[in-house]
């Protein structure tokens, strides 16, 4: 892998070490207990005793968490708390960072996704991802959405592909806006449209889980609202894990919320409960805005 990218990864690691004076807000030791209900009955994905290292840096410490079927789970916490890192372990995106080491057990429908015979191509097709910054390919809108089905061989002819593209764009709530300009470059759309295009691109391969890494952080409030509505619609068909640093967004879109702090999963629970009656002092400090 390229050295430049490694340096970026190292920089991301360094950011995680960002000096945050936690003595003021209460601190957790090395051994700790996640408060609340990290486990659910009908888990789509489960993670157990997850530890992630970037080189020497211990980015995630012993996190165990279930993601329920067809639920939206929000992951919140101060920047550099490990929420994005955790999200990326769920479809093994950390594999492409050479200095990153992941420990623990991960299951998708009871299947070990880090086992030797698990295939990352298949896994990533089943667990899709939407990124912080809209990143459409420099291709046409049509080709952006068709990219996944094409590489995975999901459409056997042009008609099938057209259908997949149209239904994906519809599900992402973008079709009506772009139906006359499918051959225009995806990079020409507005930021919010681009992000919905990326969501359409992700769902075109019929994933079961969609991971969203701060999908609205680069968007204006109106575009954000549109994406949030979309997430709400998508949850009927998909399981969604969303990382956000907007507590309002977490409250609006998610059923469950997990609060991360310095690489540790502090508290998990129903969104309503987390935002109204947090049990842990750190959670409370965070959601009341004392730091973040």
């Amino acid at each position: 892998m390229d050295t430049g990218r490694q340096q970026e990864a190292a920089a991301a690691g360094a950011q995680a070490r960002e000096p945050l004076d936690i003595r003021d807000h209460g601190s957790v030791g090395d051994a700790y207990q996640t408060i609340g209900a990290p486990f659910v009955d009908d888990a789509k994905m489960s993670a157990r005793h997850v530890n992630v290292y970037y080189g020497e840096k211990h980015a995630i410490t012993d996190v165990s968490l279930d993601i329920g079927r067809n639920e939206v789970i929000a992951m919140i916490g101060p920047s550099g708390c490990g929420k994005s890192t955790f999200l990326r372990t769920l479809n093994r995106m950390n594999d492409i960072i050479p200095i990153c080491r992941v420990e623990g057990q991960f299951y998708l429908d009871g299947e070990d996704i880090y086992s030797q015979d698990q295939d990352t191509v298949l896994l990533r097709a089943r667990v899709g991802m939407v990124f912080q910054k809209p990143n459409p390919f420099p291709k046409s809108i049509y080709e952006n959405v068709a990219y996944g089905p094409r590489i995975h061989g999901l459409a056997h002819n042009k008609a099938e592909m057209d259908e997949i593209v149209e239904s994906s764009l519809r599900r992402a709530g973008l079709f009506e806006e772009v139906k006359d300009q499918l051959d225009k470059p995806g990079t020409g759309l507005s930021g919010g449209q681009q992000q919905r295009l990326c969501i359409a691109r992700a769902i075109a391969v019929s994933p079961e889980v969609i991971l969203m890494d701060e999908p609205c952080s680069a968007l204006d409030p109106i575009a954000t609202a549109r994406i949030e509505e979309l997430i709400d619609e998508l949850k009927d068909n998909y399981t969604i894990a969303i990382v956000t640093h907007s507590m309002q967004q977490a409250a609006r879109v998610s059923q469950r919320t997990a609060y991360f702090h310095l690489g540790k999963l502090i508290e998990v629970g129903d969104t309503k409960q987390i935002f109204t009656m947090p049990e842990h002092e750190l959670t409370e400090n965070y959601i009341t805005g004392r730091f973040g």
Binding site: I96, Y147, G148, H152
Partner: peptide, 18 residues
């Protein structure tokens, strides 16, 4: 090639492209 942003690589790899 290195000037192509990493987000392109992530987007493609993230949906299961080799």
């Amino acid at each position: 090639i290195n000037a192509v942003p990493d987000s392109m690589r992530e987007a493609s790899l993230g949906m299961g492209a080799t």
